[in-house]
Nucleic acid binder design. Sequence first.
DNA 1: CAGCTTAGCTGTACGGCGTACACTTTGTCG
DNA 2: CGACAAAGTGTACGCCGTACAGCTAAGCTG
Lengths: 203, 203
Amino acid sequence: MPDRRQPGQRAGLSHAAVLAAARQLLAERGLEALSMRALAARLGVNPNALYSHVESKTGLLDDLLDDTLAAVKAPHPDVEDPLEGLHALMASTYEVLLVHAELVPAYLARQGARGPNARRLGEVMLALLQRAGVTGPDAREALHVLIVHTIGAAAFSTRSPLTPDIPARATEEDHRAEFDRGLQWLLTGINAFARHEERLPSR
Amino acid sequence: MPDRRQPGQRAGLSHAAVLAAARQLLAERGLEALSMRALAARLGVNPNALYSHVESKTGLLDDLLDDTLAAVKAPHPDVEDPLEGLHALMASTYEVLLVHAELVPAYLARQGARGPNARRLGEVMLALLQRAGVTGPDAREALHVLIVHTIGAAAFSTRSPLTPDIPARATEEDHRAEFDRGLQWLLTGINAFARHEERLPSR
DNA sequence: CAGCTTAGCTGTACGGCGTACACTTTGTCG
DNA sequence: CGACAAAGTGTACGCCGTACAGCTAAGCTG
């Protein structure tokens, strides 16, 4: 350790640098291995030094989570077919989640992200649903259901080989197909109800 | 502490007793407070004493999880309407999960239970799906999708009031309605596809 | 440019966690 | 009755997140 620092000497950290290192550690050794201490060690710094750049471990995770969603490709709210747009949006989210598979358990634990990126995606979804004829409380319901399905499917897809279960392992392609099929089911059902209620304003 | 024990003196524990105490602790103080040490303290015993009755904390959680599912009311596989049966089964699961809300995060973390009760429910679901015209790989897909929806919805329903979000808090009834609506969407979609493919054996 | 403030570190420590190891006592069974 | 397994105690290890105090380099102010 040639670069042992003395109290007061800086290491040149930053919020972004910490996030980047965390993502790297996460990719290499998984969520369980992401501890403040391990992260600090990787950055050549004392554990508590991280707290100058991050509020807490939870905060770090939140930032990481929302940051990841920046990669989701959201269609313009005015695409021709809103249902197709929704499909594309959820599919893109699913793909992004798979790329950062180690984070999915964290999404589950805090039941989705809450940062600006998540909000942005939520708004696009709501707009698309609106245009598909899903309005009012139904829209929020559909929103939640779609999110649950997407994150849940990602979680199933990234199941670790802990359980040998049955020798027949499902491939990534199988999981993608399963997600997509479920998404189609949902959108079909949502659409069916929306069109049904158009003619039945009873409730 | 009048009942201080000496090495070798028994405390009368058992697997069931440990599970029961764990459930109690869970109900009173939540998942985070469920530590082996707290559990041991409640039982008036040293932490490691628990390991005579439980393989590990993970094992304890697994047992707890599957145990909970014993309360789910599964319809007989030969009910008149299989779709209605599925609806009832998932709804009962949802209710059970809500009663043991503190466990839901644990379900998420390990992506469902894997014990005998879970298996039993899975088999009933598969049978019902079969009878509804969903067969082969589609059946497993539908199974997973339904489970993901149910556990995911339960997770959303038990969200802690950490995020003030918007002052308008959703009631338990709202959540139940949301779950049910999503379930209907799913079943509608699943059914629509099943009937469609009956006439289109193309793929 | 001198001085003050403050942010970014180090060092250390606290209270928690799951669980492994060695040992003692108790109940059981041949 | 004697051997033995099972169920405890006591202790300890190596983690964890994070609080607190001190130091010092960087940045701002006059």
